[in-house]
Amino acid sequence: MLKGIQYRAPLSLEAIAEGGFSYAEIPYEVLANNALPTYKKKAGDNRILMVSGLICELHGLTPDKLYDVLEICRKYQGHYVVLSTMNCEPEVLENVVEECAMMISDYKIPIFLENGCRGDDEIGYIHNTYSDVSDLMKTAQYCNRLCEEPMVGICYNIGYGNLLAKNIRSQIYQCKDYLCAIHANDNGGTRNDKQMPYTFTKGRGDLVTDWYHIVQELIHMEFGGWLIFDTTGLFGRCPEKLQAQYIRLMHAIAEDWESQYTFAERVLNKPDKKLILFGAGQMLTDYMRVFGEKYPPYFAVDNGQSRWGTKVFGVSVKSPQEILTVPAGERNVVICCMYYDAIGAQLREMGVEYEEFHDQYFV
């Protein structure tokens, strides 16, 4: 994935770079009005902050305005244009593309149509023409037929899907052939809060937005497009001195998601080592259903003595001390239990290196 943060004041460009991101998505109006502040590097800082792309309102779009958007995007070496469809009437893009399909083809800057809805935080949110990916795909198909080559794809805004109680995982799956970008933000399902992922919970800590299954679907489809954190609500409220800290946290979230993409190849595909799973409960069962056939464990261990000498899915369960009977250079230990911190501390005390299996992303 290519990762970035959507810029809007009062967020600073310096905080974006300091937080670890190399790309910033910029609103068209900011660049059109020459309102983008200068990025000021600190002494000795060699980081480069680049424009990932532009975001522009589809409402009121005309051929002349699209020309200006594409021209500015090219000037700033952006990679795409996202068209926001919040509170937008139907058939706007189709009418514009009918007039300037050749111009779009000449610029070769892809256009991503974002899902949206109608309403606001006061009256609530309802569907509009752009709320469901089936309608977005129809629009993209029509526009692409007019261009010399496919130039229109989809940007899925997870927060907007959540406002309409969409099955976001299903929506992403349906539009996988058109999905080019993700706008990641969180809300409680009623207000367009635009906070960072994992912010909102319900009941006894259940996530309002099903982030694990969303990422699971992205893993299954091998999504390699843009992941942009669209968290303007967060930066509209947090103190400026905390901006870089929050961005570091979002960068860590993106890295964690990316690590799940490579989990099997990075962690399990070690044919010269013996795979040992720490944990013989439900997560071991989940592991065996997902990876057991391709990456069978040498054995499993568990702290529960009652499980020693038993088998789970044909895997022998032993005492944790049995790990040490396998030479360090020949073993591949993976925690397969929800108590990662406690088991991690136990393994470190034993002098054992380990990885972690997080079944939420795979089951």
Rank of each mutant, 00 (worst) to 15 (best):
V133M: 06
G124R: 04
I5C: 09
A244C: 11
V334K: 04
Y340C: 00
K241N: 09
A15H: 09
Y39N: 05
L11P: 02
L31Q: 08
Y298T: 07
A264S: 13
D286T: 12
Q171Y: 02
G53E: 05
I219D: 05
D210S: 15
G351E: 12
D302M: 08
I72F: 12
M250T: 14
T190C: 01
L36H: 06
M250W: 07
V133E: 01
P37Y: 09
E25G: 11
F229M: 07
D45A: 00
Q346P: 09
D121T: 00
T139G: 04
E14L: 08
E330M: 04
Q216D: 13
V326Y: 12
D120Q: 02
N303M: 10
M350D: 14
L11G: 05
K41R: 15
D106S: 05
K176N: 08
A345Q: 12
L249S: 14
Y173V: 03
Y261I: 02
R169D: 00
C238V: 13
A345P: 00
D272P: 04
F235I: 05
I5L: 11
V208W: 04
I323P: 07
N167Y: 03
G188K: 01
T325D: 15
I104R: 03
G53Q: 08
T85V: 06
G4Q: 06
L36T: 03
I228F: 05
G233D: 05
A264N: 09
S306L: 13
A35N: 14
R8Q: 13
N303L: 06
V96A: 11
E222S: 13
A43C: 09
Y339C: 02
A32T: 03
A9F: 08
G44F: 06
F357D: 03
S22A: 07
E122D: 11
I172D: 02
N34D: 12
H220T: 10
L31A: 14
E99N: 14
E255S: 13
Y28S: 07
L136S: 01
F313G: 11
F299Y: 01
V333H: 03
I48W: 06
M250P: 03
D186F: 03
L275M: 09
E353M: 10
L163V: 02
G124P: 02
R248I: 05
I214D: 00
M283Y: 03
K108L: 09
A24Q: 05
L11F: 11
A165E: 05
I276T: 06
N192H: 08
T129K: 13
E98H: 04
Y76G: 08
Y287D: 07
L146D: 04
F263H: 11
A300G: 11
L13W: 07
P10N: 10
G159K: 02
E149W: 04
Y261S: 00
R8K: 14
R74M: 04
F313V: 07
M103Q: 01
I219T: 08
V152Y: 01
K176Y: 00
C117F: 01
Q321D: 15
L275W: 00
D135P: 01
C336P: 04
E99K: 15
